[in-house]
């Protein structure tokens, strides 16, 4: 029964702060729509960055600076307060005639993948937010309420995926909202809607997980053995992602953590440690006063 804390990233079932797959139900939405999410199939991404632009247009996200990075065709570098969708470009040498069906005979493989907030089942950003600015919605997604955020910046290092960030000059934290406003109106998110090849698929998470499993099977059948899902496992370190991916290489190749964990998992233990530490401090300092009288300089044992 004791939660396994070290060896695996699995979540302790029934731990006080760890939620179930019913993220909205756990957070006070009694009658809520199905949990919505993204399945981003990177094997059909054409690296067009429509998702990046559509997101910016919809959310009026500021321009993120003009910098030629030399990181292949990626000049956005990563997710940030001003980039809520980010398309990664990875140029790889592959053995010729790989026959993978995705790669080519050119000896080059060019991976493209659109990254986004994972809308974690157990979202560290949301857990640590002291103001309640970060919020679980009825769709099971995670959003920042810009009218509440005071820019404490705690969510930034809390996120195991490096997603949420503070905006310079503005001070507040920003990230993908899964287009909460649109969802409320029965519309799909701007990025998914724009995506020319349906690399970004939006829908009820259950359905997406099934579809994704089928797609992996299909790709494996077609000889693309390297196809794998990332973030689809409800038993992983964050309880599964609301936005998960089909990747063609190791996660870290795309800048993703191989085994992310919501640190809230360890929080009860940490609170116990802290309590113990506080008592230790009290006791340790108090001990220094024991058996000694003031005004008796020089007398020591």
């Amino acid at each position: 029964m004791a939660p396994q804390l070290i060896a695996g990233a699995r979540l302790p079932v029934g731990a006080p702060f760890i939620g179930s797959q019913d993220a909205a139900g756990d957070t006070g939405y009694t009658d809520h729509p199905p949990r919505m999410g993204f399945f981003t199939d990177t094997s059909i991404c054409i690296g067009c960055k429509a998702c990046e632009v559509a997101c910016k247009e919809w959310n009026a996200v500021p321009e993120d600076g003009q910098r030629l990075t030399g990181m292949s065709f990626d000049n956005s570098v990563g997710l940030s307060a001003d980039t809520w969708r980010h398309v990664a470009f990875i140029e790889q040498s592959v053995s010729t005639g790989s026959g993978t069906g995705i790669g080519t005979d050119a000896g080059v493989r060019w991976l493209m993948a659109s990254d986004v907030c994972k809308h974690c089942t157990n979202a560290a950003c949301l857990d640590v937010c002291p103001t309640g600015a970060l919020l679980r919605t009825e769709f099971g997604t995670v959003v920042v309420q810009p009218d509440v955020c005071n820019g404490c910046g705690y969510c930034v290092p809390a996120c195991p995926y490096g997603v949420i960030d503070q905006r310079e000059g503005d001070g507040r934290a920003w990230k993908c909202t899964m287009c909460y406003d649109r969802l409320g109106n029965g519309q799909e998110p701007a990025c998914a809607k724009a995506c020319p090849t349906e690399s970004i698929q939006f829908g009820p998470l259950d359905e997406l997980r099934e579809r994704a499993a089928r797609r992996v099977t299909q790709l494996h059948g077609a000889g693309v053995g390297e196809a794998r899902l990332y973030g689809a496992d409800p038993d992983d370190g964050v309880g599964g992602d609301g936005a998960f991916f089909l990747l063609l290489d190791e996660p870290e190749t795309y800048g993703l953590p191989p085994d992310p964990v919501v640190t809230t998992r360890d929080l009860p233990a940490m609170w116990r440690t802290a309590g113990l530490a506080a008592l230790t401090l009290l006791a340790g300092v108090a001990a220094g006063f024991l058996g000694r009288r003031p005004f008796q300089p020089g007398r020591s044992r």
Binding site: T27, G28, A133, Q145, P146, D147, V148, G184, N185
Partner: peptide, 14 residues
């Protein structure tokens, strides 16, 4: 973490 901390702005999102 959810329903309790919603702001009025959030409720009024359109």
């Amino acid at each position: 973490r959810g329903a309790a901390v919603r702001s009025r702005h959030t409720d009024g999102l359109r």
